[in-house]
Design a protein around this nucleic acid. Structure first.
Lengths: 255, 255
DNA sequence: ACTCTCGTTCGGTAATGCCGACCGATGTTC
DNA sequence: GAACATCGGTCGGCATTACCGAACGAGAGT
């Protein structure tokens, strides 16, 4: 494989940088963060601005992401097959389970939420399509890890962040949990990301049986789990049925 | 202004191309559409794939947009000041008007929807944040044109598309309508984009009084307009109040 | 009013990515 | 079933390309 086009790689790095820091960034910050000369960074930013991938605050001169990215992002949703084939099943799962349903796929060592159905009754929820969840502390992420949809080693290079006292941060803990998930065919997360919240998830397979994403329900721990902190069997059943149905739609033969 | 980095411009053109055609595109199609050599297009695509801006169907080898764009798109929403300052006002406007509320900003000769509040009662609506509306056949677009937020001349180069028999396609018609909008301070669209639907919109101004976006309510024509096809004054009032409030929040002094 | 910082410009340089011809696989047609 | 057409991918030579670092000018802070 020959070398990638570096100006494009650099442009992408700048966009990721702007997406990460939630505030506007100055040219100097961008240049030094990526180890580029100011002139170089400026040329790339000027081009990105020209195609509406970044905007510049006319007052301060600082840069932020541009409007064209929003349209590209939603266009991605439109063509994404995993999402389009899942929508009906996700709706049904939300109705049957009474909980919020989310669909995730791996992206850059995290879980990208590509679909989100609100909990049927409640309306005070924020849409987190496009959000990135941690691999080790979300049910979607743990399932993706367990079934090899994304490599585990990158996560273990540096100690995973502990969001609550239940977050699995030790490699052995995490490895055991992932083995269990592989055996059971589904995975759970109970107050590992935020206290009072829990979720369960199951893998979605595409053609050839490869795991390409995960679907999960999540909500308040007392509605997801029994009094012993174990996920309710009824929820697991409907969840796994949905996951299997989507996998079948995607062309996964007999999984 | 020195020359923009063309590999990045080309990469952006490829992404726009992939976003436009809603199906997957082959390498040859991409290369010929942009007048590039296959090798060149492949190098750019390989790089875009490497940064997750593009995905490749392993079976057919065809390309489509990648997952990273979704995250960048939602990150744009997070930092967009126009949107964040409008959310509360848009919610209130939807509640007061009983109709769907949308916020738009110009992008590449269209209107990009950057916020959308569903009509309060109904739930069978699709979120069109990230969608692109035509300038000449949406209330948001007509307002943006009238107040100079986006140039009119590009639109008039080729005959605007006629979506219904009410769509304004002749430059004189459109020019008159825009003049009226400028005088009134708000604009309407009655069955110009799809029969049975209507909308009204008002401009949002940022620092210095420049129009940076528009806010509008839209819905079934019989709820937006009176029996003579004129927008209801009550709706116009609450809409304009919301637009003024947002403008004030954004720092537009006395508009 | 001075200075420090920031975004921006500019020209020389050589590294960069572009081009077009060439592979190998796939699936299509007769 | 075999020849062909088509497609995605690769490779090497060339010159165009974009990178770099220093200099500029505006703006804010002191």
């Amino acid at each position: 494989m020959a070398g990638p086009v570096q100006s494009i790689e650099r442009a992408a790095a700048i966009l990721r940088l702007l997406a990460g820091g939630s505030r506007r960034l100055g040219l100097g910050e961008v240049a030094s963060s990526l180890g580029l000369a100011k002139g170089t960074a400026h040329g790339i930013l000027r081009t990105l601005q020209h195609v509406d991938f970044v905007e510049q605050d006319p007052a301060t001169g600082k840069y932020q992401l541009g409007a064209a990215l929003l349209h590209l992002g939603t266009s991605y949703l439109d063509v994404n097959e995993l999402r389009s084939r899942s929508i009906n099943w996700a709706d049904a799962l939300a109705a049957r389970s009474g909980e919020a349903v989310r669909l995730g796929t791996p992206l850059e060592g995290r879980v990208l939420v590509i679909h989100h159905v609100f909990r049927p009754d409640d309306t005070l929820q924020s849409l987190d399509v496009g959000a990135l969840l941690p691999l080790h502390a979300s049910s979607l992420g743990k399932v993706l890890l367990a079934f090899g949809a994304t490599p585990l080693d990158a996560l273990l290079e540096d100690e995973p962040e502990a969001y609550t006292r239940h977050t699995l941060v030790h490699p052995e803990q995490l490895g055991r949990a992932l083995g269990e998930i592989r055996d059971l065919g589904w995975g759970a997360e109970v107050q590992e990301m935020s206290m009072g919240e829990a979720g369960i998830a199951a893998p979605i397979r595409g053609q050839g049986g490869l795991v390409v994403g995960a679907i999960g329900v999540s909500g308040a721990v007392e509605r997801i789990c029994d009094t012993k902190g174990r996920p309710l069997p009824a929820l697991i059943t409907v969840l796994r049925e949905a996951a299997r149905a989507i996998s079948r739609d995607l062309g996964a033969a007999r999984w």
